[in-house]
Design a binder for these strands. Structure first.
Lengths: 157, 157
DNA sequence: TATTGTTATACTCTATAACTATA
DNA sequence: TATAGTTATAGAGTATAACAATA
């Protein structure tokens, strides 16, 4: 096979992989979204925001939340408004910078999240139950390379 | 380590893998969405619909498109309306079932899609360029297991 | 009665850009 | 001037459910 034909094949493989990644993610994501709605009357971005805060008990600034959730700032404001109205998170002042706000889970929020997270983890374990422990590790490692490469190429428009 | 602790660890691994899958997919998807908009004034669902038709030159019925795109019927009608108005796809009658419609790419649609698809493939190749040929194959295989397991467990609400 | 596709509706999520208040 | 967060807006994307035509 000549080089060009080989390149074409490799390109096709990349595309096929991408379509499969998309399919797998959508299958799991749709299931998670509908169960979050049905069982907890919440949404994935709300769950995601609370999960970020759970991992940072000292709280996170709005722009840090925005970066981690990979959405723009206005959206974080909206979701935070909802969760604050339900007393699940709170905005607190930041020392030495009166522009910034620190968002934290409230006690009620921490408890509500713990309940959801336990069930949520079960959904994910089920979804990935077709893989051996070792295959999970391999996937994690390979996707780590993808992530790293994407982040390195961030600027390349 | 006792069995319970081991189970907890494996659960955590599954969750970590899922979060990484989600991150990778979102990184690539956001880039693809914004480039489709900027360079071709189109959206991912529109591109996806055309891609499905491209793979089925004989055309697809609305409900088959709906199934493959993993969205409900009403949405397919809306996207098809747009693309039909731009003469990129056409609705044709189906023999022996006057309820059904067959959607096909027009010649113009086939050409427009070919142009987009070539550029799109380059984006994906770039995004996955951090992986060797062999790693691409491994990922494809392992995600195939995930997909298969999800489809097998479809009913399990 | 069941199925195909359409219509109507409502809601979530998102980006963009203008705005304010601080720095 | 630059940054942190908010507001306002518009559009994408989706599900749901009622509907018409046909099977």
């Amino acid at each position: 096979m000549d080089l060009e034909a080989r390149a074409h094949e490799e390109h096709h493989d990349a595309l096929r992989l991408w379509l499969r990644m998309l399919t797998c993610t959508q299958l799991i994501e749709q299931r998670v979204r509908s169960r979050l709605r049905e069982q907890f009357e919440t949404t994935l971005p709300r769950f995601d925001l609370m999960a970020q805060l759970e991992r940072s008990p000292e709280g996170l600034k709005m722009n840090e939340l925005s970066r981690r959730m990979m959405v723009t700032g206005g959206n974080v404001t909206g979701i935070t408004d909802q969760l604050e109205a339900e007393d699940l998170v709170e905005r607190t002042a930041v020392a030495n910078d009166r522009r910034a706000l620190c968002i934290r889970l409230t006690d009620a929020g921490r408890k509500a999240f713990a309940d959801m997270a336990a069930v949520h983890e079960g959904w994910i374990v089920d979804a990935l139950a077709g893989l051996s422990e070792r295959e999970v590790a391999t996937l994690h490692k390979l996707l780590g390379k993808v992530k790293q490469h994407m982040n390195a190429n961030e600027v390349t428009a």
